[in-house]
Computed example of a mutant assay.
Amino acid sequence: MGKGLLKGAKTSRRGPEISHLLFADDCILFGEVTNRGATILKGILKEYERCSAQCVNFDKSTIFYSSNTT
Rank of each mutant, 00 (worst) to 15 (best):
residue 1 M to A: 11
residue 1 M to E: 08
residue 1 M to F: 12
residue 1 M to Q: 09
residue 2 G to H: 07
residue 2 G to Y: 02
residue 2 G to K: 09
residue 2 G to F: 01
residue 3 K to N: 09
residue 4 G to S: 11
residue 5 L to H: 05
residue 5 L to M: 12
residue 5 L to I: 05
residue 6 L to F: 01
residue 6 L to A: 09
residue 7 K to F: 02
residue 7 K to V: 15
residue 7 K to E: 15
residue 9 A to M: 14
residue 10 K to I: 05
residue 11 T to S: 06
residue 12 S to I: 02
residue 12 S to Y: 01
residue 12 S to T: 12
residue 13 R to N: 14
residue 13 R to Y: 09
residue 13 R to T: 12
residue 15 G to K: 08
residue 15 G to H: 09
residue 17 E to F: 15
residue 19 S to K: 00
residue 19 S to W: 00
residue 19 S to Q: 06
residue 19 S to L: 02
residue 20 H to R: 14
residue 21 L to R: 11
residue 22 L to K: 08
residue 22 L to T: 08
residue 22 L to I: 05
residue 23 F to D: 10
residue 24 A to M: 11
residue 25 D to M: 13
residue 26 D to M: 04
residue 28 I to T: 15
residue 28 I to P: 01
residue 28 I to N: 05
residue 28 I to Q: 10
residue 28 I to F: 12
residue 29 L to H: 01
residue 29 L to C: 07
residue 29 L to V: 06
residue 29 L to A: 04
residue 29 L to Y: 00
residue 30 F to E: 01
residue 30 F to C: 04
residue 30 F to V: 03
residue 31 G to C: 08
residue 31 G to D: 00
residue 32 E to P: 00
residue 32 E to V: 02
residue 33 V to T: 14
residue 33 V to P: 15
residue 34 T to L: 06
residue 34 T to P: 06
residue 35 N to I: 08
residue 35 N to P: 02
residue 35 N to C: 08
residue 36 R to T: 09
residue 36 R to A: 07
residue 37 G to H: 06
residue 37 G to W: 05
residue 39 T to W: 02
residue 39 T to M: 10
residue 40 I to Y: 00
residue 41 L to Q: 01
residue 43 G to Y: 03
residue 44 I to D: 01
residue 44 I to R: 00
residue 44 I to K: 00
residue 45 L to M: 15
residue 45 L to I: 06
residue 46 K to W: 02
residue 48 Y to L: 03
residue 48 Y to E: 04
residue 48 Y to N: 04
residue 48 Y to K: 04
residue 49 E to F: 02
residue 50 R to K: 14
residue 51 C to E: 04
residue 51 C to Q: 11
residue 52 S to R: 09
residue 53 A to T: 12
residue 53 A to Q: 13
residue 54 Q to W: 02
residue 55 C to I: 13
residue 55 C to G: 03
residue 55 C to V: 14
residue 56 V to F: 03
residue 56 V to N: 01
residue 58 F to A: 13
residue 58 F to N: 07
residue 58 F to L: 15
residue 60 K to W: 07
residue 61 S to W: 00
residue 62 T to Y: 13
residue 65 Y to Q: 06
residue 65 Y to N: 07
residue 65 Y to S: 12
residue 66 S to R: 10
residue 68 N to I: 07
residue 68 N to K: 06
residue 68 N to V: 11
